[in-house]
Design a protein around this nucleic acid. Structure first.
Length: 550
DNA sequence: CTAGGGTTAG
């Protein structure tokens, strides 16, 4: 979307001074500070300026000059400033330099540790960051937060939450930055329990309404944990003004939960308040239109981006449009749209077309998409599985086998599907046909009882999703043990009547499980929320929030 | 002012 450098200061001219002192003065001049004398404080100010300007070259000059002028050993001030410079510069090389500097510093204080901790955690060096953390004398809130925030943002949310638990045990009170980071991690893994607990704490501390960043992170956390209504309550209660991020997060949240109408209403309200939308807002709107089948409305939004809001559509928006068109069955239009794109279509764009081809069982378009996907994202097994699905639907089993051979040839492994459900604070994971759970027998009995009742209510197994060329009885046996069914059956057994069941799945829910979930929600009188690979399904009284359009 | 924060299509 937006350039990551947007809002960053402009790069400054390079230093070309021949000697070190002159370079130091040049860097000082650039930082707008007095150049009368070089002291550790002025050099640290220069280093800080270089960090802000992202001018690593000038920073190295400051480092060199500081060494020559023997400014480095006076205090931790200057070494820390230089450590920060290297630690926050991109590339493993600079991180390595930071580590080297840290290891050879004559004195280290808490800030030295925190600077390096931040850099290690943010780049996903989990083990090294934890090791350093254990070595440091007195970790502060900021040290804990550096770990949690870094892990949450570098794709290690489970590590982030583990550290948070340790922080609680250590009796250190989280601040608003910690809270935001924990929300990010909860959103990622779908940990509603922790999210709720931290939200309650945030409210007690007074961040609940007044801190925009805390609120925005809470909105996203609730959305991604399957509680749009709770997200909306946070949004509605926001006192200190919502930003475009709040509006966009909520619009995306409604879209993700199949509440496209609410997403569009929110956009109208946003415009009414004069808040200018950004590119993310439109991703949410297009997503909403796509899941409601509002092709013309979506097209109108797409066109208004540039015309009315001066926002140039980016590849994400093209992706949404391809999804919108192909979901609605306009596969040829989608293909033409792709061909007219001003940028090179990526795997997501072709993936959206492939998804539409599956939905509308179009072998030809599916094959067209896979030809590009095999080049753009060759290791992704999902695309081959979808294509197999299209072939299986058409009864072309020799082609299904051909796809399987192609996968084998390319070393592409099919991802095992799993579903997880959290009961009483413990997460129970299931894979298809799983026999590892201690209560398998009871789970299977429950499931078979449900299956019998479901059949009496008109449910019939949808064997088309089973990609095995076996007889229907065998297909039904495979289907009946899909991981989400096991997770839900367990959830029904392990929770009191009426409790909402929340299931997380690593792949997309299959159409048979989708049908079954609807019936189960009716039989058991439960709300079942399933977090799919890319959206939510809320089953209640026999219907799904996606209105079977997904 | 030596460390940290929010939204994004399949």
């Amino acid at each position: 979307m937006m350039s990551p450098r947007a809002g960053a200061p402009p790069p400054c001219p390079r230093a070309h001074s021949p000697n070190a002192l002159a370079q130091l003065h040049a860097a000082l001049a650039k930082s707008g500070l007095s150049t009368c004398s070089a002291t550790p404080a002025t050099a640290a100010a220069a280093a800080r300026a270089c960090t802000r300007l992202r001018d690593i070259r000038a920073g190295r000059a400051v480092h060199g000059a500081s060494a020559k002028l023997a400014l480095l050993s006076a205090s931790t001030l200057l070494p820390n400033a230089l450590l920060h410079l290297y630690a926050s510069s991109p590339g493993e090389h600079h991180l390595h330099l930071a580590r080297l500097l840290f290891d050879t510093m004559p004195d280290r204080d808490a800030a030295s540790y925190n600077i390096l901790l931040t850099a290690l955690a943010a780049r996903g060096h989990v083990a090294e960051a934890l090791e350093l953390f254990d070595e440091m004398p007195e970790p502060s809130v900021r040290s804990w937060t550096a770990l949690i925030a870094g892990f949450a943002q570098s794709g290690s949310p489970a590590d982030a939450l583990r550290v948070f638990r340790d922080m609680e045990l250590a009796g250190v009170a989280p601040n608003e930055v910690t809270i935001v980071a924990v929300f990010v991690a909860c959103a990622d893994v779908g940990d509603l329990e922790t999210g709720r607990k931290v939200h309650a704490y945030a409210r007690r501390r007074g961040y609940g309404k007044s801190n925009v960043l805390v609120c925005n992170a809470a909105i996203d956390m609730y959305v991604k944990c399957g509680c749009v209504d709770a997200a909306r309550a946070v949004f509605d209660a926001m006192e200190n003004g919502r930003t475009v991020v709040s509006w966009s997060a909520m619009i995306c949240g409604h879209a993700m939960h199949g509440e496209g109408d609410k997403a569009l209403e929110l956009f109208a309200a946003m415009r009414g308040r004069g808040v200018p939308p950004n590119g993310v807002t439109f991703v949410g709107l297009l997503h909403a239109c796509s899941h409601m089948g509002l092709v013309d409305q979506g097209r109108a939004f797409f066109q208004s981006m540039e015309k009315d809001h001066g926002i140039a559509p980016e590849i994400e928006h093209y992706g949404c449009m391809v999804d919108l068109l192909s979901r609605a069955g306009r596969l040829q239009e989608a293909l033409e749209f792709i061909n007219g794109m001003p940028m090179e279509p990526n795997s997501v764009v072709w993936g959206a077309l492939l998804g539409g081809a599956r939905l509308h069982m179009d072998v030809e378009v599916g094959e067209k998409a896979i030809r590009r996907l095999a080049v753009l994202d060759p290791g992704n097994d999902g695309y081959y599985v979808v294509l197999s699905n299209i072939y299986a639907n058409a009864g072309r089993w020799e082609d299904v086998a051909r796809v399987r051979r192609a996968m084998k040839l390319r070393g592409v492994k099919k991802t095992r599907g799993w579903s997880a459900i959290s009961v009483g604070g413990a997460v129970h994971e299931f894979t298809a046909g799983d026999c590892a759970h201690p209560q398998v027998t009871a789970i299977c009995e429950t499931l078979d009882r449900l299956l019998g009742e479901a059949r009496r209510r008109g449910y019939a197994p949808d064997t088309s999703v089973v990609l095995l060329d076996v007889d229907d009885g065998e297909k039904e046996r495979v289907l009946a043990r899909h991981s989400e069914k096991l997770a839900v059956a367990f959830g029904l057994m392990a929770t009191p009547p009426g409790t909402t069941l929340r299931v997380m799945k690593n792949l997309r829910v299959c159409s048979d499980c989708h049908a079954m979930m609807k019936v189960i929600s009716e039989i058991a009188g439960r709300e079942i929320v399933v977090r799919d690979r890319n959206r939510f399904h809320c089953f209640k009284n026999g219907v799904c929030s996606c209105r079977d359009y997904w």
